[in-house]
Design a protein around this nucleic acid. Sequence first.
DNA 1: CCAAAAATGATAATCATTATCATATACTTT
DNA 2: AAAGTATATGATAATGATTATCATTTTTGG
Lengths: 137, 137
Amino acid sequence: MAHCTPAQTAVLKALQQQPEPISAQALYTLIKAHQRIGLATVYRALDALKRMGRVQHRVTLAGETLYNAVEQDRHYMTCLDCGQSFPLDTCPLKGLASAHQHAGSFTIYYHTLEFFGLCEPCSVTHPHHNRYEAAQN
Amino acid sequence: MAHCTPAQTAVLKALQQQPEPISAQALYTLIKAHQRIGLATVYRALDALKRMGRVQHRVTLAGETLYNAVEQDRHYMTCLDCGQSFPLDTCPLKGLASAHQHAGSFTIYYHTLEFFGLCEPCSVTHPHHNRYEAAQN
DNA sequence: CCAAAAATGATAATCATTATCATATACTTT
DNA sequence: AAAGTATATGATAATGATTATCATTTTTGG
């Protein structure tokens, strides 16, 4: 197997058209509206595309797995309190050459990067001081 | 609820002693050997600690969820072919001030960062050229 | 100390994901 | 082009990490 199957192509193209990361189930529903495809096939295609370095996944704080095409290099700041993810304007690794091709003997296709903390509204409700040190005990 | 419960403390301390990220199930087995604790409690403690910013999770390519204490700021390069994760020596965001405290109005507690690609042995078996462009079709 | 609230442990339930298997499709050989 | 072989697919059953449930225990606050 050295090329993309029709199903994998359909999955990749659908992902490339998504404005936001999407779940496997939602992707299945989306594609199924236009062509015959099985849920298992969507999962298999996603897995294959992941291993090809074309698709990446991110698991949210709530445990949901979301997929996106790797060329959509998007990063988020996720609030630990309300769970909202705020997209960053640019990739923080922009200036880091090693992030984009090689690190030592390792060939890099893509990276994942996310920040976790408190958004402004939540840090007012739950001041940094109390929360962080409370967990220290 | 403004402080750490005994179970949460046990979970956090166990995590802080782990040389590597660990699964919830393995953590449960580990702690249970020393004290009475339920599996559901381990999961609840992990979730609470995650929301407190003390614990983070990472989901491997194989779908396994691993947890670590956030002070163990470790990053990996993961091979898409063999699935092996190679730890980085230092945090690539070391020089990025915004990564460690504030980004705009967002208070940052921790970040996750991982690179995906091919390790040297696998890139010999599966040259970059063929794999990447084959998926372009 | 006591009532109320929160956390716990055992275990059943959930559901995203994967395994199974018959069939379809793609690839290779004749 | 046909036949043989290999791979992928779709429907659906199975899986297992994780969460819900509930009686009980522990913690909190007055």
